[in-house]
Design a protein around this nucleic acid. Sequence first.
RNA 1: GCCGCGGUGGCGGAAUUGGUAUACGCGUUGGACUUAAAAUCCAAUGGGAGCAAUCCCGUGAGAGUUCGAGUCUCUCCCGCGGCACCA
Length: 886
Amino acid sequence: MTTFYDHQKLEQKWQKKWQKEKLNLADDKSKKPKKYVLDMYPYPSGEGLHVGHVESYTATDIISRYLRMKGYNVLYPQGFDAFGLPAENYAIKTGVHPAETTRQAIKNFKCQLNSLGMSYDWSREVVTSDPNYYQWTQWLFLQLYKKGLAYKKKAPVNWCESCQTVLANEQVVNGLCERCESEVVQKDLEQWFFKVTAYAEELLNKIEEMDWPEPLKHAQKNWIGRSEGALIKFQIPNSKSQINSKFKIPTCRQARQNSKHFIEVFTTRPDTLFGATYLVAAPEHPLIEDLKLKTENWSEVKKYIQKSKTKSQLERTDLAKEKTGVELKGVKAINPANKKEIPVWIADYVMMGYGTGAIMAVPAHDERDWEFAKKYNLKIFCVIEPEISMDFDPSKITPKQFFKSIEPYQEEREKIRRGEIVFSGEGIIINSEKFNGLKSEQARDKITKFVKGQKQTQYKIRDWLISRQRYWGAPIPIIYCDKCGIVPVPEKDLPVKLPQDVDFKPTGESPLALSKTFHKVKCPKCGASARRESDTMDTFVCSSWYFLRYADPKNQKEIFSKKLIKKWLPVDLYIGGMEHAVGHLIYARFVTKVLRDLGYLDFGEPFLKIRNQGIILAEDSRKMSKRWGNVINPDDVVEEYGADALRMYEMFMGPLEDAKPWSQNGIIGIRRFLEKVYKYITRYKEQPTRFDREARRASNKQIPNPTLDLIGGQTNSKLQNSNFEVERQLHKTIKKVTKDIESLHFNTAVSAMMIFINEVTGNQKLATKEIIEKFLITLSPFAPHLSEELWSSFAKASEDKESKYHSSIFNQQWPEYDKKLVVDEEVTIAIQINGKLRETIKVARGIGEKDLKLKIENLDKIQKYIEGKEVKKFIYIKDKLVNIVV
RNA sequence: GCCGCGGUGGCGGAAUUGGUAUACGCGUUGGACUUAAAAUCCAAUGGGAGCAAUCCCGUGAGAGUUCGAGUCUCUCCCGCGGCACCA
């Protein structure tokens, strides 16, 4: 396309100047009110920035620039999530050290971000792989350790064969590794965990108070997964004879076993306890081993346990698969409600990690138990039936009709009783002795008390597994001593630096374990020779606190100073992808709460307002992917159309949070708009005298309101009026853009600016310099380079070297709109007859109902409709619409 | 299966509290300029009927509330996203 301005020259010129002038520094000492605007920092991959980054980063850049012009002291930093697997995998393949690839990638990213005109305060840059940063990640680990919130335990964990490392639950997607999509298997390993579960309740109940997107809130609530229920113990008697002969005194050994041998289950439905016809324990349940002697079919049981151990996460959780299990023959449990003896099974549809690892099965009222019971021919016993809903008036119905209407219910009840269908809802208790007739809700507490059960709240969320058997991460600052056991590295010895002499080839053990310089160490307690922990931390530990470091990034003595944290935190606006809903955001909230409880922070929620940007799809509406060859590289777009056009187009595409397909023609449309702005203002500059002359002439004649400081107008009063319209349009635009930036509706803000430009160019109306200036300021957060260029171009015309045009447009104040000017004096009123639009009429604003009625009734077209008919109603919505009902 | 979000022209999308549906952009068509093309500018552009004035139909489908529904209520269909044997 032919262009009227050279975006490359112009953009580079201003980018250089902005960097030199340091316009974007957040001021620690300023008394102005603060705002903290934050992007989710990028992982510096070799691929560079993609258009999705550009979308969210432009949004925050617009807001930051806007807030600065509004008079805020804005913290708008950027950094890099620099540790992580891709760099290490690349090192395995090529031998290039991750530090080197990361350094290169960061250099490239910064260059790209600058070429987009992002107004980051680079003096606060944070790089998580920098020892000055990970020193404090390690320090954080030590604080958690001291508090008992970091602990080591042997547990079944998710293991990715391909990445040769363990993964957090949050990194396993449908049984596959989030990163490489290979199958995740279970391994029993000794690993470090952070006790996120200790904060489950607070993490959950603060969600509602936050200004976050609804889907994000739901994802978090779901993940934390709170449910209320009860713990109930099922006794396992020693032998048949013991239950039958109540009065026989048990031997000491029997008594001891008796007290030990019970199975505790967690249930959310204690109201169905009378219907529990068997128990099921997870294959990993420790009690199974204890019951070995009693189990008559031990070899079969052992085989089943072995088999389920080798199953992958994917196999075990595959819902489509038929449930399997094995009975512990010879072992019985007593249902504490009705004292009936029930069988005990083992099945891998029960998970060890949730509740107690064992359940009471109520096949009549639980889908899964029903399926299992049907397969293995277990007893189904109905204890709840649905309530008949009376959504009709019984007094207005004959007995015959009544019975007819409840017929379907009766049929359903019969089927439930016979165990033909499952009823998992709430209802009325039956077959439960003295609890019969109660509603489920009432029965829950009563039955729990009756069997001496304990009320309990369970969460689905697990503790956060942070160990990784990989090199490119922050080393866990722990030393193992034969005498002293686990010894934390003293804080003064931090950082525990990553060694250079490593072999990157993964062996299932951390590469650090094979480094001679790293591994051997003296115990800080006793001085004996000891060994270092060789695992590194999950990179999400690094990103769980980076937003705090921006407040005080260069502090060598402490993680951050309380004073600066108080000045800048919490984050006022955080924009990033929805994919971090349950990982990063939960971890960051957790760490914030821990630091608060340790006295380092005085707030518990780091992000007051969060918005998620939607993904940008390719032009073919598929995901952008190398595989499809449909990836748009922002560098190419910047080169061809300019950063301003790219930024503005991405804002114009649609709502920030929606998924939107790319359109090459769309960006051309934006470029056309920018050209129009450029041409219009250039034309103005070429003929300022004409504008001024006409403005003077106009002001000598009839200006509607002289205080409006109106200039311009071509030849006569009609045009004067049209210039008045330009001023009105400007104020409407300022109002709309201001409101839209604050509510993040950037697409309609761009639209408003287009309407303004169409108004002044299309109708050949003349704007004044003041109008042009204000418009440019409004445009500047969106198209910073062009706005700055046009702003500064006024300086040449000015004789005064001290004039504002010699200073950046971003040092100007955001324009206020005039309330009087945003309302039109004339309004168009829609006239409806019986709700259908028939005519519109232009009248003066604020016209009274009587005057309007008279006017309308005189209109020929309206007379046609109301002639000879009775006007039943005349509805008038002020300055908007009239509806005549005939 | 459960939970959440959504469905508006040829396309991306606008539409305060229920008050003129389709703003703005793209595309398309016609015109101006040009030897010609591109670019630019102007005009038209939801569908249908009509010479026209004008009329009828239109926000996934159906019903309801209302003077009036894209917006509120109910039922259903479709798409996207999250969680998923969580007891």
